[in-house]
């Protein structure tokens, strides 16, 4: 009896799995972490909201397709995509060569630039190779690369996580930091409104250090979906929808060059 029950469970599980497999012709399913505000997060009622969700829906309106966002842990993103549990990774995933070996990416849909942050009254000299002799925090391999390239004489401290770097800027161990701008804005500047932290100077741009930006991950065989998503990104950027959403959530450019 237990055997039959086992079989039945197996069959119904199979049915559930195949029903869950996304069909390219109906709803497009995007995976998100729902844990990276303001790009994606859970609202109080449990629904998934954020800039990426609004952008995705605007793109789908262009494509005249129905889209839905599903929550997925970060580690399961690429395996989930490859096993057809959803059709796209719309989750602030950076386009890298390593990932491109297993999945394809659309064109970038954002690339928030790195920017310097310091307290009011700190004299940061962007034209100097040592940045004016300040102690500057950087993220390993990313903004560190930019400082090595453009400010080789700067006194830099290297961090593995933005949170640790923000703590040292707050405690005064660092005079300034070079950080990805949205994280610095939401993790530091808006969290400490009275501390006098602000972006200093123009964004730090360098394709060699900051890579190719953030795209939507799709399966390699879904070339049509990738093409129509690329068209949709171009369309929302052209008709002003993109800029309106950026203005609503951030108030400064996050597309980059």
């Amino acid at each position: 009896m237990f055997k039959t029950l086992g079989k039945m469970t197996a069959i119904s599980l199979l049915a559930a799995v195949s029903a869950g497999a996304a069909n390219a012709q109906d709803v497009i399913r995007f995976a998100t972490e729902a844990a990276y505000p303001p790009f994606n997060e859970r609202a109080a009622d449990g629904s998934i909201v954020g800039w990426e969700i609004d952008l995705g829906q605007a793109m789908c309106a262009h494509m005249k397709r129905e889209c839905e966002f599903v929550a997925q842990d970060w580690d399961g993103m690429i395996p989930g995509l490859l096993s057809n549990r959803f059709d796209g990774i719309f989750a602030s995933m950076t386009i890298t060569e390593e990932r491109k070996q297993r999945i394809d990416f659309t064109d970038k849909y954002y690339q928030s630039p790195a920017r310097f942050v310091s307290k009011d009254g700190v004299a940061l000299d962007r034209s100097a190779a040592d940045l004016g002799g300040l102690k500057v925090g950087a993220i390993a391999g990313v903004t560190e690369c930019y400082l090595n390239k453009f400010h080789p004489d700067a006194d830099i401290a290297i961090y593995r996580s933005s949170e640790d770097m923000f703590l040292d800027l707050q405690s005064g161990r660092l005079d300034a930091i070079l950080s990805e701008s949205v994280q610095a804005d939401f993790g530091l500047i808006r969290e400490n409104p009275d501390a006098g932290f602000a972006f200093r100077g123009e964004p730090a741009l360098d394709a060699g250090c900051f890579g190719a930006g953030i795209g939507i991950g799709v399966r390699k065989e879904d070339g049509d979906l990738r093409a129509s998503l690329n068209d949709a990104i171009a369309a929302v950027r052209a008709d002003g929808t993109y800029d309106a959403l950026v203005e609503k959530y951030f108030g400064y450019d996050i597309y980059g060059e």
Binding site: A140, C145, I158
Partner: peptide
């Protein structure tokens, strides 16, 4: 180790 990490990042 920090030197090795810096080297790796570079």
């Amino acid at each position: 180790l920090g030197a090795a990490r810096t080297f790796n990042n570079k």
